[in-house]
Design a protein around this nucleic acid. Structure first.
Length: 436
DNA sequence: AACTAGGCT
DNA sequence: GTATAAGCCTAGTTG
């Protein structure tokens, strides 16, 4: 048992006595089982969406090419950049460069969206072609005879996070015009429900605990929205008077801190002057002394030992932390801060998966014994089907959904005890979007 | 294979 | 003066 918040009394946290290596090993069979189970998708609905979005792409493409007055390949960034910036001479002063020329990334085109009627259409075209080429076209081709998708899960060697490939089920759309529609195509089988459980702001809770920052700990302990608390300190207003915009700013800064964001990065993210961004960051660290000291302490220790580690002792070596090359050194400093947070969150989730699977197995055994379910119906029992960094999804018979939701919440919230509460949000639905 | 872009947490 | 937010996977173009 080791308490991660070293600045405070030793017993405020309870971390099970298990190593990161053991977690790594014991989650593997859980992952293999999830791959085997697979997730059910509504193939007809995907094909329908494919046709629908495809028609909009065709129309956009026609409009864009007629607006631009030439035949170029819209999927070629280099052809597009040459046309927009060299031939049509659209303003370039705010446009980032790539190795080859001007960038046509969405964020850059957005800055000049009024400079030419084709620009907003190009942005839509990009959004829709992404959905078709990455999701709507490939997914139906990857299903088995029962319309289930079987991904491959792997554990990342640098942070311990779980990744998903062929297909990647961890980047199924949720935002944007058709995002929710696509997520709705991941469905529960007949008579089943999907139960989704999300850790609420797990990474911020971890940094609150590791740093012992008074304001952040206080917000979590009193169940005050942490972004609203940050906004309240930043804008010198009571929490009740914080606007949506102010909360959004605070949220971006809170996440920025986890990643080591600079004034430049913040100014880009919020679309504000760099000076203002610098002021926000200064003010943030003034209000959150604990976080400031934690970051200094972590990078200092990384320099001394050449590595950082997570709550269960997973180590990441940082080869450039003492480099004379500022670019490389600062990249390692950001990893030094981020890896223990992201990696610890990954371990907490994996330990919850191991524990949850154990309890589901025990439950399944009992169900079988009391013959509450048909003996050979492999589908009629709760199974983990998805894991997405801070979320787990279980598919289970409708009748068990509430019970399973409760179990997931209980297991995930108590698998470790930090010096702030861990909160989980659960939902039940017929598809992935509805279960949140 | 490198580059650019973009989906998710 | 220069680059600038952690981690992952996939797709299309280019040479």
């Amino acid at each position: 048992m080791l308490c991660p918040c070293e600045k405070k009394n030793k017993d405020c946290c309870l971390v099970p006595d298990i190593s990161s290596e053991q977690i790594f090993r014991r989650v593997e069979p859980v992952l293999r089982e999830m791959e085997k189970t697979g997730v059910l998708i509504d193939v007809d609905r995907i094909k329908q969406l494919n046709r629908q979005v495809g028609r909009r792409i065709d129309k956009l493409k026609k409009d864009i090419l007629s607006d631009l007055g030439t035949e170029i390949n819209l999927d070629s960034p280099s052809q597009l950049a040459d046309l927009l910036f060299n031939q049509l001479k659209l303003p370039t002063e705010d446009i980032r460069r790539t190795q080859s020329g001007y960038s046509t990334a969405a964020g850059e085109l957005y800055k000049i969206k009024h400079a030419h009627p084709a620009i907003p259409k190009i942005l839509k075209y990009r959004e829709f072609t992404k959905l078709v080429s990455t999701y709507l076209e490939p997914l139906p081709k990857l299903v088995d005879e029962r319309d289930r998708l079987h991904t491959h899960y792997a554990q990342d060697a640098r942070t311990g996070r779980i990744s998903s490939s062929e297909p990647n089920l961890q980047n199924i759309p949720i935002k944007g015009t058709y995002g929710a529609d696509i997520r709705k195509t991941i469905v529960a089988g007949k008579g089943n429900k999907l139960v989704s459980a999300d850790y609420s702001q797990i990474e911020l809770r971890i940094i609150a605990c590791f740093s012992g920052d008074r304001q952040m700990m206080d917000a979590f302990n009193k169940n005050i929205d942490v972004h609203t608390r940050t906004a309240s300190l930043l804008f010198h207003k009571p929490e009740g008077k914080i606007s949506k915009e102010e909360r959004r700013f605070a949220k971006t800064i809170n996440f920025g801190v986890l990643y080591g964001m600079s004034p430049f990065g913040l100014s880009q993210a919020l679309n504000i002057p760099q000076e203002m961004a610098a002021k926000f960051i200064f003010e943030y660290f003034h209000n959150h002394q604990g976080i400031k000291e934690y970051i200094e302490e972590t990078t200092y220790r990384a320099r001394k030992t050449g590595a950082v580690e997570t709550i269960f002792g997973f180590k990441r070596k940082l080869f450039n932390i003492k480099s004379d090359n500022r670019i490389l050194r600062e990249a390692d400093e950001r990893m030094a801060v981020n890896t223990p947070i992201q990696g610890s969150a990954a371990e907490i989730l994996k330990l919850a998966m191991i524990t949850l699977n154990q309890k589901l197995d025990i439950k399944n055994q009992k169900q079988k014994d009391s013959s509450a379910l048909p003996q050979n119906d492999m589908d009629a029992r709760p199974r983990l089907i998805l894991t997405v960094h801070d979320e787990l999804v279980v598919e289970c018979p409708e009748k068990q959904a509430k019970e399973v939701a409760k179990l997931m919440e209980e297991v995930m919230e108590n698998v470790v005890k930090l010096c702030v509460p861990i909160k989980v949000e659960v939902g039940i639905g017929d598809n992935w979007a509805a279960s949140k």
